[in-house]
């Protein structure tokens, strides 16, 4: 019972942000914001970001920051979509080709990472340029799917996919040996290695799993209808957009699994963007407000317990003086 209460309390800490945003915008719009269509649209818009963030979190759990997510998603979306249309295989073919390409690209990254022993950030910067160029060679005009192949971006399919991926993430990180190994390596790689973990293998597997998440992200991206190719780090905004939600979720939901906190963080950012649009603020003000809210919330999350700590320090000092 006590454990349950603690869990509910931790969950409420994560949900405070979206609830607060709903309350603020409900007041600002005289209740018009509390509208199922607005909420469903924001939820739908957060599906792709959530799946990409969960993939990035798998790498981040081991201390690896991967900038190639956006590029591999665009590559998977463009090539996968065009192959699916060329083979006439419809939605199953789209899923298959996106998976093959996404997993393949991340496997290559994992292999290079193990071979070269350079930081993931560095390697991913180079691979971003390569993965952006690959679809341009084969399909320079990008990919446009016909309407009947875009079902997966609609409800309820997109929500089913998001729930499946969140559950998969939860199971991998909590109930598999691989997930525990990843956490161990993330906490202290030297001790993990000393304890006998095969670091190379675990890291490669994490890249492959990340590739699965990026593939599904690519699937959701192309299912919106069309994807254009990019160049010169043009895929960064695709990824950066999700980063803020991911870090928000990570820091606000320290005591819950990231399968819950990350989607809540991404959803909150989308809710914020929708709310600011409805209230009539221009996009520049929206960006400023989003950045400010991110900083305020992160500093709150980083400093909770500070007041208690200061009080405890003062008490301790008092006791020490009394004894002296």
């Amino acid at each position: 019972m006590k454990k349950g209460m603690v869990y509910i309390k931790n969950l409420m800490e994560v949900l405070i942000l979206p609830i607060a945003l709903l309350a603020v915008f409900a007041v600002a719009t005289n209740g018009a914001f509390i509208n199922s269509r607005i909420l469903m649209t924001a939820l739908r818009q957060s599906v792709m970001g959530t799946i990409v963030c969960l993939g990035l979190t798998l790498n981040l759990n081991m201390g690896m920051m991967n900038f190639a997510g956006g590029a591999s998603m665009i590559c998977g979306a463009v090539i996968g979509g065009n192959l699916a249309m060329a083979t006439g295989s419809g939605v199953p073919g789209l899923i298959f080709f996106c998976l093959i390409i996404g997993v393949g690209l991340m496997t290559i990254q994992g292999g290079l990472y193990n071979a070269f022993r350079v930081p993931c950030v560095v390697l991913s910067l180079g691979l971003t340029m390569v993965y952006e160029a690959v679809p341009r060679i084969f399909y320079p005009e990008g990919c446009t799917l016909p309407i009947d192949m875009t079902k997966l971006a609609l409800s309820p399919y997109c929500f089913i996919i998001m729930i499946v991926m969140c559950v998969a993430f939860y199971i991998i990180t909590e109930y598999t040996v691989l997930g525990h190994n990843m956490k161990a390596i993330g906490e202290n790689p030297a001790i993990a290695m000393g304890a006998g973990l095969n670091i190379d293998k675990v890291k490669l597997m994490s890249f492959i799993l990340t590739g699965v998440f990026f593939s599904i992200g690519a699937l959701m991206y192309v299912s919106k209808g069309s994807v254009d190719n990019v160049a010169a780090m043009g895929s960064m905004p695709v990824q950066m957009e999700s980063f803020t939600g991911m870090f928000l979720g990570k820091f606000l939901g320290k005591n819950v699994n990231k399968a819950i906190s990350v989607p809540v963080g991404v959803f909150s950012m989308k809710l914020l963007a929708s709310g600011l649009t409805i209230v009539g603020l221009n996009s520049n003000m929206q960006t400023i407000i989003q950045g400010t809210i991110l900083l305020v919330l992160l500093s709150y999350a980083a400093n909770t317990g500070l007041i208690d700590k200061i009080k405890a320090d003062r008490e301790f000092a008092k006791m020490a003086r009394a004894r002296a």
């Binding site: 699916a84 249309m85 060329a86 083979t87 006439g88 295989s89 419809g90 199953p92 073919g93 899923i95 298959f96 093959i100 446009t144 016909p146 309407i147 009947d148 192949m149």
Partner: peptide, 23 residues
């Protein structure tokens, strides 16, 4: 899984070619 998708793809190939065209 791959085999299932390939079979699904082949199965849809006859019907799906028109769907594959852009509107």
């Amino acid at each position: 899984v791959a085999m299932v998708f390939v079979m699904a793809g082949c199965g849809n190939a006859g019907d799906g070619k028109d769907d594959g065209k852009k509107d």
